[in-house]
Write a protein that binds this DNA or RNA. Structure first.
Lengths: 291, 291
DNA sequence: CATAATAGCTGACCTTAGTCAGACATTATA
DNA sequence: TATAATGTCTGACTAAGGTCAGCTATTATG
């Protein structure tokens, strides 16, 4: 690693330290120490189990307990024993607590918004931030099943179609392609999987089934900022697992030689080239894998 | 600003918070509270005047004084009155202090290096970090005079040549162009200015003089990650100021229509198109400005 | 059923960071 | 030369974060 690279990295660290410090201090300014504000936000973000909050915020049990008492005194939080295990406790925001949480969210959103509006080329800045955030947080990316008709799924599919249109010499019009109706990618006939980074989708793959022993893998796509982390392989493994659960014996897929990284992945992971099995105008390579 | 953009910004903030927190905590782990470590690093980075360190780290004078005493007790720092003004004090690292500073630097460098080595496409990641760092720190970019033969200047010039080679249809070979020998861009004949962000150069411009009343502006270049902040305009203003100091009455420059943003800037800032005044093969537009 | 493990609570205590008023020496200014 | 301003230092004080031993209640386990 060159010293110039390291200097650039450290310039980055200095610049974001100031910005992140300012984000942190947006947790202040509402008459409450940072620790208590962080607890309100952890609960607001859906963490309820006290031990879970403690682990997330890295707090001593004594400190955590005191923070919860002070928030109860303020009327922002109620606690009650965990229904399954009375040693544990769960915390909930009161109506006032939810208002405080919204206020904190609003402050963070406003700061983000102000920064983005001041930036020339905001979309380029966001893509740069995506790349940094995903590289730093690559180990926290999870694979989860989702409805193919959900907003997160649709945003991935649109990005996929746009990328095909850019990369295929012929362009790409989803209406001319074999567009699997979303129902074919919903259980029990099929499935749809998303790679999620911090509640934002960064990749997808669909399993288009018919109820029979043969199903098709469709719509494998990874956000450009998340490439190189092995997500495509993880998604393909997950879709194979889902196919096995649905008693699928044979998987098929079609793809295009303009997507060499996809071809390489299929060849490396046990897929076998077969003859054309549909009349879709776009693909020029066809693969099969027996499960 | 869309809610999706804001969510992406906040994902970025979360990801770097963890990383920056880790960077901060590399200031810990050497048996010294964060405040004292930050003072050691400020002095090591060349800040000597106590008031200057205080302003930089945003510290109360009482706290600063105590931190310096504790560092003196540790044998890391000595202080003495400022030679010009005995009210002020200057702080210096002792030999042991310099060792501590090096240790902190080593920890930060190691962390940066480890992260970059783990990243696929490290250069793309660095460019993304540059864009984020420069956008966040745009108000801290300064214009300073530098030697045209210095390393910082040379790295800008090389980037400039590479960009010309990319953007001119004919390509660009600096040997075929009127390459001003560096001496012509050094005082008292000329000048060379750099835009600096955190000790790294992000833009340059040269003033090529002959000692006479006519001089030439050369090599205006801005790092792609720093475009849109008005740096070109600032550099041009600075080079005009430098020219006036050198008693230059008339400035000239040549440029190419493949660089429309440069042409637009010159036209907006009082430059007048003139006839070709050299036989350089690359430029196709020529401008003049009377100071 | 006795014992161990788990989860949280409480009180005592410590460190770090930060604030503020006042003291002191020095320098700038009317 | 008197006065104001500047820069640092000291002592007194506070808030916030954090640690630890011991307590209670509950659940898991041999």
């Amino acid at each position: 690693m060159t010293s110039d690279s390291i200097a650039r990295f450290r310039r980055f660290a200095r610049a974001v330290t100031a910005e992140v410090g300012a984000l942190d201090s947006s947790f202040l300014g509402r008459g409450r120490p940072l620790g208590a504000a962080r607890v309100v936000n952890a609960i607001g973000a859906g963490r309820m189990d006290v031990a879970e909050i403690r682990a997330y915020l890295n707090l001593d049990s004594g400190l955590m307990s005191r923070l919860l008492r002070s928030l109860e005194d303020e009327g922002l939080v109620t606690t009650e024993p965990h229904p399954d295990d009375a040693r544990r406790r769960v915390a909930r925001l009161t109506e006032a607590g939810r208002r405080e949480f919204s206020a904190y969210e609003g402050l963070s959103d406003a700061r983000a918004s102000a920064l983005l509006e001041r930036a020339p080329r905001a979309e380029e800045l966001l893509r740069a931030m995506d790349l940094v955030a995903l590289t730093l947080g690559r180990d926290r990316i999870t694979i989860a099943e989702a409805d193919a008709r959900s907003e997160a799924a649709r945003s991935c599919l649109e990005a996929y179609y746009a990328e095909l249109a850019r990369r295929l010499e012929t362009g790409f019009d989803v209406k001319l392609s074999c567009d699997p109706e979303a129902e074919a990618m919903v259980r029990p006939r099929g499935a749809f999987l998303l790679a999620m980074a911090d509640d934002l989708p960064v990749g997808c793959v669909g399993l288009k089934g018919s109820g029979g022993p043969v199903a098709e893998v469709k719509r494998l796509w990874i956000d450009p900022a998340a490439r190189g982390f092995g997500l495509a392989r993880r998604l393909m493994q997950a879709v194979e697992t889902a196919a096995r659960e649905l008693s699928v014996a044979v998987l098929r897929l079609d793809t295009n030689s303009a997507l060499p990284e996809a071809l390489a992945l299929y060849r490396k992971t046990g897929w076998v080239a077969i003859d054309r099995f549909n009349d879709d105008p776009y693909p020029d390579h066809f693969f099969e894998k027996t499960l």
